[in-house]
Design a protein around this nucleic acid. Structure first.
Length: 463
DNA sequence: AAACAGACCAACCGCAACTAT
DNA sequence: GATAGTTGCGGTTGGTCTGTT
């Protein structure tokens, strides 16, 4: 919602408006002879907007410092540029963020940190300022409320990514075996050319794909979700699996279509197909082996074996799928051990998974007593949520994953923007946010505050 | 109805990177 | 290579709106 540009609040709005209105290029010359121009600050007037738009139409974007000189607009170049990019340029999308956009922002923030401009590149029609404002207000509000900053689905990504760093995925993954050339390209892009001393990007999509699940790019569906994604139950979540740190995003990443990596994560708990089409994932570099690290995330060193496995390439081995499936199964087993239930059977590494997925059937857990039941997809969603509930405290247990101070206690200022983009790890800081202290009680309102699906409450059982 | 607090948003500022000279 | 100018980015501020007391 944009405020009326006519709301001039400067000290002498009338005079300034007059000045702005009356100037053509001839009037400028007069000013140049006069005393130094006092540039205006504050809200833009309609007349100023018109002048700026006219200037851009004539001269194109750029050379912003010339705007004042050429048009007499009493604004500095920076202000002109800002006004243009944030409000006047065509194809800007105004209004509140759609649920899909919200989810995407959370994903992007999990991956990039406070790289608003880069995030904006993934949200056509949105500006960095808009995203920044959105995130800061929501994040602050959630932090104040003692809620995790990221929605569960993003936390799951981070949790799994973090977890997997400590798993011994010793086998190079066979991207060449992935179905679909685009997939291979995209997934390879997450690792090829990764020359930093930082840990190699972890890409669970790849791992999942190696288990035989399909990984595919979907066309960008319109942002049309009817309700806030953060209000949704957990389940669709396991959808996006380009993980933090896994897909370098460069400023030159096309700002148009959003590319999605959507593994069919039917590892016994399944996802609804309708969910799958909705979730955006972080755009890979579309095959370019560009090396540009995200500003943060996963600063911790990955064990060498994991680093090697996590995407530095390598020849495909015939048994990759089984090995990785076993790793994932092991992970699930551990998670289920924590909650004293049996893990769901890992889906076979072939079409069977998709079949189960489509049918909504399959053995899933019933939390009560660990009995297995045939439940519908929703219940499987819940089970996945339970898994996640268990995952977070496990992952953040001090003996396994030391949390940076920011993770242990939210920033005193309540801001999410204070970490150094290179030094801090929002995947840990924010992932772990607001976890109840060991032995402590969960915050009273630990759900996402929107649909009452509170999986976090169960944490007290294991903390 | 008034006061207050929080949310929201536009815009500014400082800094860094980039480019031209 | 040094310098100046330009552009882009992220953090912050301050005004307005809206809901609550």
């Amino acid at each position: 919602m944009e405020r009326s540009p006519g709301a001039v609040l400067t000290s002498s709005p009338e005079e300034e408006e007059k000045a702005a209105d009356g100037h053509g290029e001839e009037a400028v010359e007069q000013e140049e002879e006069a005393a130094p121009v006092v540039l205006k600050k504050g809200p833009w007037t309609t007349a100023e907007d018109v002048m700026l738009v006219d200037h851009v139409q004539r001269h194109g974007e750029g050379n912003w410092n010339a705007v004042q000189r050429l048009t007499g607009l009493l604004r500095c170049g920076k202000s002109c540029r800002l006004r243009w990019t944030n409000h006047l340029r065509p194809n800007l999308k105004k209004g509140s963020f759609s649920p899909d956009e919200e989810i995407l922002i959370a994903q992007l923030h999990a991956q990039l940190g406070n790289k608003w401009a880069r995030m904006a590149a993934h949200l056509p029609g949105r500006t960095d300022n808009e995203i920044k404002n959105y995130w800061n207000t929501r994040a602050k509000r959630r932090q104040r409320a003692g809620l995790p900053v990221y929605p569960p689905e993003v936390q799951l990504q981070l949790a799994l990514a973090k977890r997997c760093r400590y798993d011994d995925f010793t086998t190079p993954l066979a991207s060449a075996q992935l179905p679909g050339a685009a997939n291979v390209q995209a997934l390879d892009a997450t690792s090829a050319g990764y020359t930093s001393s930082r840990p190699a990007p972890l890409d669970l999509a790849r791992q999942l794909a190696a288990t035989g699940q399909t990984v595919q790019f979907l066309s960008p569906p319109p942002f049309s979700a009817p309700s806030s994604p953060w209000a949704k139950p957990f389940a669709r979540n396991a959808q996006y699996f380009q993980f933090a740190h896994s897909s370098p995003v460069s400023p030159s990443t096309p700002t148009g279509p959003l590319h999605r990596v959507t593994p069919d994560l039917s590892l016994g708990y399944g996802l609804r197909s309708t969910d799958q089409s909705r979730l955006a994932t972080l755009s890979p570099s579309l095959g370019r082996p560009r090396v540009e690290l995200p500003s943060n995330q996963f600063g911790q060193a990955m064990p060498p074996t994991s680093a090697a496995a996590a995407g530095l390439g390598g020849a495909a081995l015939p048994d990759h799928q089984h090995q990785n499936a076993a790793s994932l199964e092991k992970m699930l087993q551990e998670l289920h051990d924590a909650i004293k239930v049996d893990p769901p059977a890992l889906a076979p590494a072939n079409g069977d998974a998709a079949e189960r997925h489509a049918g909504g059937g399959g053995a899933v857990l019933e939390r009560n007593g660990g009995r297995e039941n045939k439940l519908d997809g929703q219940h499987r969603d819940d089970d996945m949520g339970t898994l996640f509930d268990m995952m977070i405290p496990t992952l953040n247990a001090p003996e396994t994953v030391p949390l940076p101070p920011a993770a242990a206690a939210p920033n005193h200022s309540g801001s999410t923007s204070q970490y150094s983009s290179d030094d801090q790890d929002p995947s840990t800081a924010d992932l772990g946010v607001d976890l109840p202290a060991a032995g402590g009680a969960s915050p009273p309102d630990q759900d996402w505050g929107l649909d009452g699906v509170c999986q976090w409450r169960s944490m007290s059982r294991i903390c």
